[in-house]
């Protein structure tokens, strides 16, 4: 049994009177891609943001590699990376400068910096366009740059919110492959997506989240079998209705 990289227990998050998360539990193991799926407003992004340490939990616990993310967020940020939905780049920076900025932020050792930068260049796959200002990139190019930024530092846990949002078919396929390959290397990936085909293709396990609660968890095959559905979309529709 692979070791859990992320453990979430009884996670609750309230915005004033509104409870976005009502005590959710899940874990993501080494080499696993774990997906949160659910309708808009179900609490997926909130869950990802709490795990990414940018929102504070109202109750419950989150630990990454055994480090309490609520008590020691600075330590956790060293070993995670977060790609928000619709994230942008610094438009006046070139892609290369942006990747250098991230490498410099994470590594003091010049060799590690160079290695991370090289990984970023390869993942982004933008070749000579890396020298252009990111403000001139298409949505697909910007998304690939951001994905490169997210996993070039080899985080133990990569948190990806709608990683292929706005991408065309070819770019989306490329991104999914990158994500799968990355997880196979031993890291954990927590992602959220509205694209059920993508979830089915890339995820090892899926949690169905509805109105702030996880209503079911399992592999795509298990969930389809359990809900008597042909596709994950049918499972999603059954749970959401």
């Amino acid at each position: 049994m692979p070791q859990a990289v992320l453990e979430v227990r009884g996670l609750t998050k309230a915005y004033g009177q509104i409870e976005a998360l009502k005590g959710i539990d899940f874990e993501v193991a080494e080499g696993e891609v774990f997906a949160l799926i659910g309708p808009n407003g179900a609490g997926k992004t909130t869950a990802l943001r709490v795990v990414a340490t940018i929102l504070r939990a109202s109750a419950g616990s989150v630990s990454v590699e055994g480090i309490d993310a609520l008590k020691e967020p600075d330590r956790v940020r060293e070993i995670i990376s977060y790609l928000p939905e619709e994230a942008g780049t610094y438009k006046s920076m070139t892609g290369e400068t942006y990747l250098k900025f991230v490498a410099n932020l994470f590594y003091a050792d010049p060799e590690k910096r160079s290695a991370a930068l090289e990984r970023g260049r390869v993942i982004a796959g933008l070749d000579e366009r890396l020298g252009d200002k990111s403000g001139s990139y298409s949505k697909g190019m910007a998304r690939k740059l951001l994905l490169a930024r997210t996993i070039m530092t080899e985080p133990r846990l990569a948190i990806l919110d709608e990683p292929t949002s706005g991408l065309d078919v070819l770019n989306a396929l490329e991104v999914r492959d990158i994500v799968k390959r990355y997880a196979k290397g031993g890291a954990a990936v927590l992602l959220s997506s509205h694209n059920m085909l993508e979830i089915e293709y890339v995820s090892d396990r899926v949690a169905l989240i509805h109105e702030g609660r996880i209503v079911d968890t399992g592999s795509p095959a298990e969930l389809k079998l359990k809900h008597g559905a042909d596709t994950l979309e049918d499972v999603f529709a059954a749970v959401a209705s």
Partner: peptide, 8 residues
């Protein structure tokens, strides 16, 4: 958001 999740 990406900056806030970075080790700074």
């Amino acid at each position: 958001e990406t900056l806030l999740a970075s080790p700074i």
